[in-house]
Write a protein that binds this DNA or RNA. Sequence first.
DNA 1: CCGCATCCTGATTGATACTG
DNA 2: CAGTATCAATCAGGATGCGG
Lengths: 121, 121
Amino acid sequence: MENNLEKFSITENCPVRGVLDHLGDKWSILVMMVLGEVEKMRFNELNKTIPDISQKMLTVTLRSLEADGLIKRTIFPQVPPKVEYEITERGKSLLFHINNLTNWAIKNMADIKESRKLFNA
Amino acid sequence: MENNLEKFSITENCPVRGVLDHLGDKWSILVMMVLGEVEKMRFNELNKTIPDISQKMLTVTLRSLEADGLIKRTIFPQVPPKVEYEITERGKSLLFHINNLTNWAIKNMADIKESRKLFNA
DNA sequence: CCGCATCCTGATTGATACTG
DNA sequence: CAGTATCAATCAGGATGCGG
């Protein structure tokens, strides 16, 4: 890879930042990982699988992932309502990189923990 | 990869979250990318390369990356002071995955932009 | 069942001024 | 030059209540 730096280090109007914002927020990665391991999942199942997320943040997270075409939302017009979420191909291709990152984190977390201890000593 | 989900989806005491927190904050990735493309760089050079970052946030960001052993800080005891920063091997191995992500973002940003437009229409 | 609207709080970031 | 200290602003996230 040559220099992405020159083109994208400027923070204003940085397109990469916009796309990678999902990595920044608290829940997107987790939701993607869950949906990456199932066919489909309903709203309430997601909420049970990620107990700490509030209903509001689950909705917000799902919407922003949907807007970017990373997940797909299917509404079944029935009473009571039923909505299913599933990961898209684009979402899968992103999830691949996310999984590489989490695996890196798992491999390195012991060393990092040790570094932090030394740093704070 | 088998199920990371079961082990790490719980948000409290999630070790992966702690390690990947750098991806969440506003400047860490940018600083890593800059340091990934140079041998070493001084504080003020970094500040010029990333014009939008404040002195304070640059300091905070550098410290947290240093604590995790992702960058190395070298103080030259002279007047005026001189401090050099460089990426570590651990940092490089993380940066590799970050670069994969940014490349993914660059490849997909046009499609994502289009998705967003349709979504908001 | 699914989700939106409102309000509210605490953490993160930024502006500014100062120092060894 | 390379920070620290302080204060102000901003924003993500959570609580709650309502609606189709």
